[in-house]
């Protein structure tokens, strides 16, 4: 599949064309400077001036809370009404870390077990990524997923170059979409391709990764969650849900029935493994009562269980859990210390 050049002046026309494929979702800067993906924005409101949004795009595929169905009691039982499928989504300006997060969600919701709600949205969606030219120092997407040099998860990847964008179709669907609006795209020249390579090299150089992820699965087998290492690790945690709720690859949820006794709805909401109630069971048993044990739970799931079961680390290196953590807990620092830790045997 060939790379094409989209002049900056044609971006509006192209986005207008894309709107015919579904609801356009793009980053918008709000009055107080907060940047978030919003559905159906005016072209003038779309911003390209952002490192990354605080909230990843996962909320459009696995919404924070989603009504699975409505129910009503009738004679001899229930009437159940499933929510209708929505318009397909076209998401523009997705960073590679967020696009890669969808790959992780795919494995959880469209793999061995298929979740119809997620799968339908994902199947119909078009993801257009925008290359991240200035990663935040806390980013490590190249280190964990090789995203800068081997992008995945998106249908089209745009590299911002002088005068426009280089559009790289990463999937068949992306290629088709570019093909449909041939008039807007041009063949790239050698200069542009060279600029793109330099951009990738610079972005890779701006990141640092201090952990060899391949050693983690074995190490997690060695140290149980009750180890003093994890106890100490958890001490500075406030036990909120920032790290998991802002993670593009986290996928835990809980289900609540909200009803007035006669009719109601079943709602699926995000859940966080850092919550002290996360593992609590009927009868009062709690296998993860301490903060450190819950850290172990989260990290072992992402870096040991997921590669074993799903052939992919469930972390995309977006750095949000470091940047937005109230304690600025650093996941890489933790993993590095973990790899170096030797338990003192009594």
């Amino acid at each position: 599949m060939n790379m094409k050049f989209l002049p900056a002046a044609s971006l509006k026309d192209w986005l207008d064309l894309l709107r015919s494929h579904g609801t356009l979702i793009a980053p918008v800067k709000e009055k107080d400077g907060f940047i978030a993906f919003r559905p159906d924005p005016d072209f003038e409101d779309i911003t390209l001036d952002y490192q990354n949004t605080v909230r990843p795009i996962r909320e459009f595929f696995l919404p924070h809370s989603e009504t699975l169905f409505n129910f009503e009691t009738v004679q001899n039982g229930f009437d159940i009404e499933r929510n209708k499928p929505e318009e397909p989504l076209v998401i523009f300006g997705v960073r590679l870390c967020d696009a890669c997060g969808l790959e992780a969600l795919d494995r959880a919701f469209s793999g061995k077990y298929t979740d119809p709600y997620y799968t339908e949205r994902r199947k119909n969606a078009l993801i257009i990524s925008l290359f991240c030219t200035e990663p935040h120092p806390a980013c490590f997407c190249e280190g964990v997923q090789k995203l800068m040099t081997g992008p995945k998860g998106a249908d089209i990847l745009l590299y911002p170059v002088e005068g426009g964008f280089l559009a790289d179709p990463l999937s068949e669907k992306g290629d088709k979409i570019i093909g449909e609006s041939k008039k807007l795209f041009k063949e790239p020249d050698a200069e542009q391709l060279k600029a793109k390579d330099a951009m990738v090299e610079k972005a890779v150089g701006a990141q640092s990764c201090i952990v060899d992820f391949s050693l983690l699965p074995e190490k997690f087998k060695e140290l149980p969650p009750s180890s003093p290492f994890w106890r100490e690790e958890g001490e500075g945690c406030v036990s909120c849900g920032v790290c998991s709720f802002l993670c593009p690859a986290c996928q835990c949820f809980s289900v609540q029935d909200i009803s007035d006794g006669k009719s109601g709805k079943r709602v699926r909401c995000w859940a966080t493994c850092q919550d002290c109630r996360f593992a609590k069971m009927a009868g009062g048993i709690d296998p993860r009562p301490e903060k450190g044990e819950r850290h172990y739970h989260r990290l072992s799931h992402k870096f040991a269980d997921a590669p074993a079961r799903n052939d992919m680390i469930f972390c995309t290196g977006c750095g949000r859990c470091i940047r937005y953590c109230p304690s600025h807990h650093d996941v890489l620092e933790t993993l590095k210390k973990f790899l170096e830790y030797e338990e003192v045997k009594p």
């Binding site: 907060f34 978030a36 909230r55 909320e59 924070h64 406030v238 036990s239 909120c240 849900g241 920032v242 709720f245 802002l246 909401c269 995000w270 966080t272 919550d275 109230p326």
Partner: peptide, 12 residues
């Protein structure tokens, strides 16, 4: 409408 109910406010 931005709130994701992460409870960071309460926990901190």
């Amino acid at each position: 409408s931005r709130c994701i109910r992460c409870n960071a406010c309460r926990q901190a």
